[in-house]
Write a protein that binds this DNA or RNA. Structure first.
Lengths: 202, 202
DNA sequence: CACTTTGGTTACCGTCGGTTACCAAACTTG
DNA sequence: CAAGTTTGGTAACCGACGGTAACCAAAGTG
């Protein structure tokens, strides 16, 4: 192997191509809907044939999973970043993280995660999918626990139950939200999060 | 027309057959998943050919819509019944209605409404589907308003926003709930509804 | 320079939603 | 009751699409 620095290795090339496929698919799924995007369309847009895609993904469903993973990673990253913002109480950090979560979720290229993908992954329930979900769940549960500890949230809340209720309320936004509405995502996020958290404040 | 009483008219026969198709489809969709049930399978179970179904439904999607309608009607009926239970305050009636809603939704034959159907009906958004949803929404908003009026709920809550938040929390149950879990639906309903409503109590 | 590996193509298959042509039995009507 | 006509079904087929098999050219390798 030559290994002149700066030249991508074969493995890097391969991975780059795979990511490009996922990126292209993600865009088309998001705008046209999973069911309405034949693999031929994705292949054509990339200038190859459908069969070529199967060098990088094992099935159309697998491709969807990879799109899901990318989206979830972005969601997780945005929440983690919001969690690190300085604030007086854990409750305040939780509020910021939740609002960020909602705003990220209402982005056009994120919406289909909740409407198209989630229902389709019930049966196989690939490991990576469950991992993303658990990650988000644990982030919020940790914040809830912090809130109990520093007294900014009710001492008698159950983190497990509370995270289900709160995440239910905010995830639901991703389902009914349509960009055509008059309210801006930031406004919606503030209102929904405020209401969803109220019952848990100390 | 003979019209001897007790003999079904042609229209009744036709409608009865249509309902039988929907019932059969609903059961198969619920247990095997919409995508995994070919029309041939439904037709075979009814002892006819696929083409015969098209005398009663206009497409597979239309069949799914009709399943949705039946399920939603059942959901609405159960909530309306719960609303009529005698209780001291509007908040208490709301609690009972919500718990009933959750319990009904976790029934095996209702679950797929939320996981399979809802995502698929976004584009066409048939009128009847929107109607069912609006109906449920208006029922809960009315209860919220009653609660404001009789003082059992916070006077400053916005019914529109509150119904989205609360319904989000409870609808989410239909998505993560699996009958295999250890908790009974009734317990889950009580816990979730209690938490979801807490922030709105006066 | 053989020879294997990689990444692609063309051609094809099976499934499935949906349609068309047709047919038999049940109504309708003069 | 005989002659249309409507109804509800069948058999055969079509086109779209996910996925596969056979093959091939170019790059990598000893």
């Amino acid at each position: 192997m030559k290994a002149i620095s700066g030249f991508p290795t074969k493995q890097e090339m391969r991975d780059h191509k795979r990511r490009e496929i996922v990126r292209c698919a993600s865009e088309k799924f998001g705008t046209e809907g999973y069911e309405n995007v034949p693999l031929d369309a994705i292949a054509a847009e990339l200038g190859v044939t459908k069969a070529a895609l199967y060098n990088y993904v094992s099935s159309k469903n697998d491709l969807l999973m990879q799109c899901y993973e990318v989206g979830m990673d972005r969601l997780i990253a945005s929440v983690e970043q919001a969690m690190d913002m300085p604030s007086d109480t854990a409750a305040e950090r939780l509020r910021i993280a939740l609002e960020t979560y909602v705003v990220t979720m209402t982005r056009k290229d994120m919406q289909y995660l909740w409407n198209d993908i989630r229902p389709l992954l019930a049966p196989g329930d690939k490991r990576s999918v469950q991992t993303s979900r658990d990650k988000i769940d644990s982030l919020f549960r940790a914040m809830l626990q912090d809130g109990i500890d520093d007294g900014s949230l009710r001492a008698d809340l159950e983190p497990k139950l509370a995270s289900l209720v709160i995440l239910g309320a905010v995830n639901w936004v991703g389902i009914w939200f349509r960009a055509s509405g008059s309210k801006k995502p930031q406004e919606i996020a503030r209102a929904v999060v405020s209401d969803a958290m109220r019952g848990y404040l100390a």
